[in-house]
Each structure stands twice: as structure tokens, then as C-alpha cells.
């Protein structure tokens, strides 16, 4: 059997990229930690797809950590240009909602006004904090992904006869000798 583990960078990049993108987009980002855990699960899906060996929970954890780090960076990069738009978007939403709803939820207006008023050092600190938190959540997502896609890995390895090239050469050379 081919015991070599598949590369983790591409699956982590896909999972982390999707998670970071969704976590950074205004309104969609309100689903809290779900996206980061989801990113870890997606990363494991792509890892399991290309894997011919059974993946362990530890493999899921590490690919999840990588996807979390990538998600933190992507979310940070996306939130910079989208930050001014976010307040505008919420203001428009508030106006539209007020037409349909009799009473707006308490504190909605102040929550909207307080969004994105952080200074630069807080933003950079936020990136560091994001990397740490997203890594932990990504690891969690990765391990959950292993429990979901574990059977897929084993199935994909079935029916493949992995014969090392060296062994064929040895057999041929043995025949020629005899």
C-alpha cells in the first residue's frame, strides 16, 4: 500500500479560503464560529478525496489548524475593504426592516453604530487572536470531518493494488537469473 499521506496545503487552502471568505462577508458572518468549523470539515473532505490511506483524527486536527490559520488571514484581508461598507449595509437593512417590523430588537441601533470602530493596534491584535481561535475551531472541524469522511477514505483505497516498482524489478531480475 502507498503509505504516503496526501498533501495538506491545498485542502487547507480551499477549506480555509471558503471559511475566511464567508466569515468576512457582512451579514453572512453572523453565523459565528460555524464557518470556521465548516472550513475544517471542507478541508478534510478534500484531503480524504485524494487519500489512499485511512486518515487518523490527528490528520484531521492538523489540516483543520492550517485551514483555521488561512481562514484568519483571508477574513482579515476581506474585512479591511468591507469594513466601511458594513455600517452602510446595516443602516440600509435597518431602514428596510423598520418598514416591516413594528418594533426593532433592543440595542440594534447601538450595535450597528459600535461596529468597526477599532484602532489599528486592535485590528492587528485581532488578527493574532483570530489565528489562535480559528486554529482551535479549525482543528475541531477537521476532527469532525474525519468522523464524517473516514469511510470515504477507506472506500477510495479499496480495489487499488499498490505494487512497489522495486518488487517488480526484483521479480524480473530473478527470472532472468534462473
Amino acid at each position: 500500500m502507498n503509505e504516503q499521506r496526501p498533501g495538506m496545503f491545498i485542502p487547507a487552502l480551499i477549506g480555509g479560503g471558503i471559511a475566511g471568505l464567508l466569515a468576512g462577508i457582512p451579514l453572512v458572518s453572523c453565523l459565528c464560529c460555524l464557518w470556521i468549523i465548516g472550513g475544517g470539515i471542507i478541508a478534510v473532505y478534500f484531503l480524504a478525496k485524494d487519500s489512499f490511506v485511512a486518515l487518523s483524527p490527528g490528520d484531521g486536527a492538523i489540516v483543520g489548524v492550517f485551514s483555521g490559520i488561512i481562514a484568519a488571514v483571508v477574513e482579515f484581508l476581506i474585512s479591511i475593504p468591507l469594513a466601511p461598507l458594513e455600517n452602510k449595509l446595516f443602516k440600509n437593512l435597518l431602514v428596510e426592516l423598520s418598514e416591516y417590523m413594528d418594533e426593532m430588537p433592543a440595542g440594534f441601533e447601538s450595535w450597528m453604530n459600535n461596529s468597526f470602530q477599532a484602532p489599528l493596534y486592535m485590528i492587528l491584535l485581532g488578527l493574532v487572536i483570530s489565528v489562535v481561535i480559528f486554529s482551535a475551531l479549525g482543528a475541531l472541524g477537521g476532527v469532525i470531518g474525519i468522523s464524517i469522511f473516514k469511510n470515504r477514505t477507506i472506500k477510495s483505497s479499496q480495489g487499488v493494488i499498490d505494487v512497489p516498482k522495486n518488487s517488480i524489478k526484483t521479480e524480473n531480475s530473478d527470472n532472468s537469473k534462473s
Binding site: S29, C30, C32, C33, I36, P105, A106, G107, F108, S110, W111, A118, M122, L125, G126, I129, S130, I133, F134, L137
Partner: peptide, 18 residues
């Protein structure tokens, strides 16, 4: 308190009503 609130804002919407 601002650092703590800001840290958690990365993973939670922190809407006052919720």
C-alpha cells in the same frame, strides 16, 4: 474589557438583543 469584547467579536456577532 474592550480587548476581551473585541477578541470574542471575531467569532460572535455580539448582538445586544441576543
Amino acid at each position: 474589557n474592550k480587548i476581551i469584547y473585541y477578541s470574542f467579536s471575531k467569532i460572535c456577532h455580539q448582538a445586544e438583543s441576543r
